[in-house]
């Protein structure tokens, strides 16, 4: 039975994906270290103990210590690995797919290189735009625009398909949620679009 843990390799020998992963992993741990410190400070302000015994700050303090402490451990171990004779070792074995992985999401198979960051960013930006324009256009037109934008910019489909998906999604929201489920959807501040209010 052999140990499949990969041996450390020279940083220059590592594929781009593993190098980026190692650096991003370090940054991630640093983030949690900083987050933990901030939470501990906030918890102290909230007061961990008071006249009743445990105050509102106790559980945040526990979380902060847990996050900050483990962030520190993670940061130190990763820095040590990087500094060790200029080597970078793929953290956690570096294998991005495990046959006994508990996660059911294929997203776990993705790497920093294989992800299409432009499309991911576009999709998130479109959701933010949706949040901004909904009070103006109303929910249904804004959603139709979101679906149209996602289809044409992220899924890179043609105009016709994108328009159909946009109209279809808007209709689904209007009839499915607004009419059938009788859920109030934000109306438009533009008079000519108020007919789509539910």
């Amino acid at each position: 039975m052999t140990d499949r843990r990969p041996a450390p390799v020279e940083a220059t020998d590592l594929p781009d994906g593993a190098r980026i992963y190692a650096i991003a992993d370090l940054v991630g741990m640093l983030f949690f270290l900083v987050l933990g410190v901030v939470v501990i400070i906030a918890a102290v302000v909230l007061r961990p103990t008071n006249a009743l015994g445990i105050g509102p700050g106790m559980f945040p303090l526990v979380s902060g210590v847990l996050i900050g402490g483990l962030g520190l451990v993670g940061t130190v171990t990763r820095l040590a690995r990087i500094r060790r004779a200029g080597r970078i070792e793929p953290v956690d074995g570096g294998h991005l797919h495990s046959p006994v992985d508990e996660s059911e999401t294929p997203g776990e198979d993705e790497t920093f290189i294989s992800v299409n960051w432009l499309r991911l960013g576009l999709a998130l930006a479109l959701i933010v735009v949706f949040v901004v324009v909904t009070p103006i256009l109303g929910f249904v037109p804004a959603l139709a625009l979101l679906a149209f934008g996602l289809t044409i910019l992220v899924a890179r489909r043609g105009w016709l398909t994108s328009v159909l998906v946009g109209i279809g999604t808007g209709a689904l929201a209007y009839y499915g949620f607004g009419i059938f489920l009788n859920i109030h959807l934000t109306g438009s501040s533009l008079v000519f679009l108020t007919w789509l209010d539910t």
């Binding site: 999709a123 949706f130 959603l143 979101l146 996602l150 289809t151 992220v154 959807l185």
Partner: peptide, 17 residues
């Protein structure tokens, strides 16, 4: 991918509602 975009749009409707 097309299915995915529809999933995002439906998620937005769902969470807003």
């Amino acid at each position: 991918d097309l299915l995915g975009m529809i999933v995002i749009a439906v998620s937005v409707v769902g969470i807003f509602s």
